[in-house]
Design a protein around this nucleic acid. Structure first.
Length: 609
DNA sequence: CATACAATGAAAGCGAAC
DNA sequence: GTTCGCTTTCATTGTATG
């Protein structure tokens, strides 16, 4: 709390800007937030309880039922990342059944450019057979067998072949069966559980981040599915091919690993350069299909399991991530990767420039700060804090020691202090940062998250942007949109993007915010109203509900989106997760593909207008 | 007011991947 | 050396009932 104190020691910084006090509240017409109810509650409950997540998960991404079934069958079980790679492969084969598009390096071969074992799972199935089936040239019995492997009954398969003819591709046959079954069940979904019953998960605890337990299937998703599937096919193909194009090849090392597969974290981690760096990079090439508007901005943790950033990058037009550590913008580290298509010249910083050392940020800590604690900045602010037991153990240990303590004690205390971001609050006393201190370090207005439980505040803040860092990258939008911008904010959280834009002085004329946590939505809406925003804030609770209809309606109302911004869940990527660090295929982190999907739809819809 | 029960919040313990 | 975490257990608060 010492950072809000008055100038008792003469060294505190002016932090009055944190309160947004200049904003007046409009008594006449407070902006009316538009809350969209989930599209079809009954349908959600019905499908959510009985369906495993994998099939609808991939179907939502634009793959057809039969392809998903095939991929799961080939893959075995569990690893949805491998399944996705398979699906991409199938898509490509489906796209070019003859395997000949004049681009020989895209065909699957032993010397493929992936350089790792990502595709090893498909080694044991016959490409040619599959191609034949996909192109409709396989025999009746072969098709029958494939359809059975997909989980359809022999009766359904044979009647479908009779109904459609022997010459149609296998996926059309599967479509036909699926359509028939769907019609019978009146909106039910393909019975994945019967096919893979051991995959079924039971969820009885509410988890705000879970899309397994309360999966939502929205009206309109299926009607728009075919068109989305077609438009996404091109993108998927490109995502798959990206690392094999010659322009992306790594020169010299000869191991045929694409540049994207060799993403190294820069040191220092300053992205295209710091504001103070006179030699910073000002221009870069953005692939034509990725150029804005709409501009997009994607964020996630920098230190992910291997292969995650290359995959994300492939899906986002092959743009390389800009890795930035927030320690250059604030007093705490925050190593993050950002993929965006924004211009990078003429960036500027938020004012005032925040303090960049612990003691500048919290001057009162100096009194108790031992000389042997050499930290000048905090480590990454996370969602959990150190326990009281730990701080007590540290105190006991220090009280029992001389001053300065012996090296082994110092080593242990420093280890725990760095691990849990403890600060000094008394003689031999350490403590976790207070929520409002975390708010300050992350660049949020004071008390931005106040009003919810302490645990929730830490959780929401730990999942958020560092505002100054993001604002620096977004600052180029100010000149581009002097009259305000229309924002699609995915995984909004507590509104880091909105706060950054607001502090940059960029007017938000309309925001479509997607955030699963009602607590975070309340925080954002409350901030929106109290800062006197004049734009319209429309809220959706689940990215899986953001379909063509939702986006079309917004675009019809506001003319389009200027910025698509969001950082998808990192729980399955973050190093501190010792249980489910499953990479992009993880239950939560796989929601990244919805960012990809939604961005794709937005670009498509806006190109049409 | 006392009790049982439910709901929520806080605390503590949990290593591995890079 | 660092890491936008997860799960279980315990404590506290809220609520319905008598």
């Amino acid at each position: 709390m010492n950072w809000v104190s008055d100038d008792s020691d003469g060294s505190s910084v002016d932090l009055s800007w944190l309160n947004d006090q200049d904003q007046h509240h409009d008594d006449d017409e407070p902006p009316l937030p538009l809350i969209r109810a989930p599209a079809n509650q009954a349908l959600q409950d019905e499908t959510g309880a009985s369906t495993s997540s994998l099939v609808p998960h991939f179907v939502d991404m634009g793959f057809s039922q039969e392809l998903v079934a095939k991929a799961i069958k080939e893959n075995g079980d569990g690893n949805s990342g491998s399944i996705l790679e398979l699906l991409l492969t199938y898509k490509m084969l489906e796209e070019s059944p003859s395997g000949n598009e004049g681009n020989q390096e895209n065909t699957l071969s032993d010397d493929n450019d992936w350089g790792d074992d990502e595709l090893s799972d498909i080694d044991d199935f016959d490409d040619m057979d599959f191609e034949l089936e996909m192109s409709g040239q396989a025999s009746f019995s072969k098709k029958l067998r494939t359809l059975e492997e997909m989980g359809f009954s022999r009766d359904a398969a044979s009647s479908a072949i009779e109904r459609c003819g022997e010459d149609v591709p296998i996926f059309e046959l599967a479509d036909s069966i699926y359509a028939a079954q769907t019609a019978e069940k009146e909106g039910g979904v393909w019975d994945y559980d019967a096919f893979h019953s051991d995959q079924k998960k039971e969820g009885d605890k509410y988890d705000p981040f879970s899309h397994d337990n309360k999966r939502r299937r929205c009206d309109g998703a299926s009607s728009s599915h075919h068109r989305s599937s077609i438009q996404m096919r091109e993108r998927l193909k490109r995502a798959y091919r990206r690392p094999t194009t010659t322009s992306r090849r790594c020169g010299g090392d000869g191991d045929a690993v694409g540049e994207l597969d060799n993403l190294n974290l820069p040191n220092p981690m300053v992205g295209f350069g710091l504001p103070t760096d006179s030699g910073r990079q000002l221009y870069r090439d953005i692939p034509m299909e990725a150029q804005g508007p709409p501009y997009f901005f994607y964020e996630n943790v920098a230190l992910t399991p291997k292969g995650v950033w290359p995959t994300i990058s492939r899906f986002l037009y092959g743009i390389l991530p800009e890795f930035v550590d927030s320690k250059y913008f604030a007093a705490a580290c925050r190593k993050r990767g950002y993929i965006h298509n924004l211009p990078i010249a003429n960036r500027f910083c938020l004012e005032p420039i925040p303090p960049k050392t612990i003691l500048d940020a919290f001057p009162l800590a100096r009194v108790y700060w031992p000389t042997w604690d050499t930290r000048t900045q905090f480590n990454c602010l996370q969602t959990c804090i150190g326990s009281a037991k730990l701080t007590e153990r540290i105190r006991e240990k220090l009280v029992a020691s001389d001053y300065p303590p012996p090296p082994d004690v110092i080593r242990w205390v420093m280890y725990e202090c760095k691990k849990w971001n403890l600060t000094w609050v008394g003689q031999n006393r350490v403590a976790p940062l207070e929520p409002d201190e975390v708010e300050f370090l992350l660049g949020f207005p004071r008390d931005h998250t106040r009003g919810v439980s302490r645990t929730e505040r830490y959780k929401s803040l730990g999942n958020s942007f560092q505002v100054d860092t993001v604002a620096y990258q977004l600052s180029v939008l100010k000149d581009l949109y002097p009259n305000g911008i229309r924002v699609l904010s995915l995984f909004s959280g507590i509104g880091g993007a909105e706060v950054a834009l607001h502090r940059l002085g960029i007017k938000m004329t309309a925001v479509l915010s997607v955030e699963i946590s009602p607590i975070n939505r309340t925080i954002l809406r409350s901030w929106w109203e109290q800062t006197g925003q004049v734009g319209e804030l429309e809220e959706v609770d689940d990215v899986q509900c953001v379909d063509d209809a939702v986006l079309e309606r917004f675009i019809a109302r506001h003319g389009g989106f200027d910025l698509v911004i969001g950082g998808s869940p990192c729980n399955n990527l973050a190093g501190s997760n010792r249980h489910h660090r499953d990479g992009l295929s993880g239950e939560h982190s796989s929601l990244f593909y919805h960012y990809f999907r939604i961005l794709d739809v937005v670009k498509h819809l806006m190109a049409r207008n």
